[in-house]
Simulated assay, not measured.
Amino acid sequence: MITSNGYILDESPGRLGRLDAVPVGERRDRDALWQRLRRDGYLYLTQHLDADLVEGFRRYYFETLAPTGLVDVDGIHEGVDAGGPVDGALTRRLLFDEIVPGDRYAALTTHPSIRDWFRWFLGDDVHLHRRRIIRHTRPGESGIGTATQAHYDLVYLREGTDRVLSMWIPLGDCSVETGGLAYLEGSHHRVMAQERAGTLRLPAASITADLPSLADEYDARWLVADYRAGDVMVHSAHIVHASTDNVDPRSRIRLSTDIRYQRVSDPIDWRWQEHWFEGDGL
C-alpha cells in the first residue's frame, strides 16, 4: 500500500506506473534528451552521480544533526531514525546556520557532474539558484503536511524564466516506501496550456495533498521509482509532482535535496538568490 499525506494511492494500471529511466544510449544525445524532456516533463538519470559522493554527504548530514536526537546512535551513518523526541530549535540552527550555507552542501550542488551537465544540456553558461532545499522525513510520519504535496515548481518561481530546470537528488537509496518523488504523468502539457490561457496564475501554493483525486481529475497515472544513491531527476517547472510517505521497514530517514539551474542569460527570480531559511515564504 502506497500512501502520501495519509491518502492511499490507487494502484490500478490506469493510476500508477513506473518512471522511465533514460537509456544509456541516449545519455550523451542532447537532442534526444530534449525531445524526451518535452514529451515526458522529466529526465530520470540513473547513477548520474558517484554514489560515494551522495552517501558521504548523507553521513555528514546526520552526523551534524546527531546532537538533536534525530538519529539512532548506532545508525548515524545510515540515517536510522531514533524514534524519540527531537530538539527542533537545535535542528533548525544546525540546518540553517551550518548545513545549508556550508561548504559541503555547496560542493555537492556545484559538483562538475551537475554543473557541467547543465552547462552542456542548456548550451550556455548556467546559474544555480542560491535557495536550495534539503528535506528529511522520518519513518512513520503521516497526515497532511508530512509528505510534499502535489505542486509544480513555476508557482514558486514567478519572477524569473519558466525555463528553469529542477534537479531532485535522493541523498541515499530512496524506494517508494521510503518516500520518493512521484510525478503525475503528462501533467506538464495541461499545466502549460492553462498557463498560456492565464488560468493558473495563483499565489505560491501546493495544489492538493489528495494525490488519488488529482490523478482522477487528470485521468493520469502517478509515476514512481525505487531510487538509488547516485540517481537524479531533472524536471521542468510545469510537471506536477509530490512525494510518498516514509514507511521504510528499516527506519531509515528519507533525505533529499532540490536545486535549480537555468541559463544565465534568462531572467532570474531575485527571491531565490539567498540561502534557504526558515519562514522565507516560498
Results as ranks from 00 to 15, higher is better:
8 I>P: 02
13 P>N: 04
18 R>D: 14
22 V>I: 14
26 E>R: 02
26 E>P: 00
40 D>C: 00
41 G>N: 01
44 Y>R: 06
49 L>H: 05
61 Y>E: 07
62 F>Y: 15
62 F>L: 04
64 T>M: 10
70 L>T: 01
71 V>C: 14
74 D>G: 03
80 V>C: 06
83 G>D: 10
83 G>S: 10
83 G>E: 10
91 T>F: 15
91 T>M: 14
96 F>E: 08
101 P>S: 08
103 D>K: 09
105 Y>V: 07
105 Y>A: 10
106 A>P: 00
107 A>E: 15
111 H>K: 10
114 I>L: 15
115 R>M: 03
122 L>E: 01
139 P>K: 11
140 G>A: 08
143 G>Y: 10
149 Q>N: 06
150 A>N: 14
151 H>E: 06
154 L>E: 06
162 D>N: 15
163 R>V: 01
173 D>P: 01
175 S>T: 12
175 S>V: 00
176 V>R: 13
182 A>D: 00
184 L>N: 11
185 E>K: 06
187 S>P: 07
197 A>Q: 13
197 A>I: 04
204 A>S: 15
204 A>D: 10
206 S>N: 12
216 D>W: 05
217 E>S: 08
217 E>W: 01
217 E>V: 05
218 Y>T: 03
219 D>Q: 15
223 L>G: 05
224 V>W: 00
225 A>F: 00
229 A>P: 08
230 G>E: 04
244 T>S: 15
252 R>K: 13
252 R>C: 13
253 I>W: 10
255 L>W: 04
259 I>N: 07
260 R>N: 04
262 Q>M: 10
265 S>V: 11
266 D>I: 00
270 W>Y: 06
275 H>D: 15
281 G>H: 07
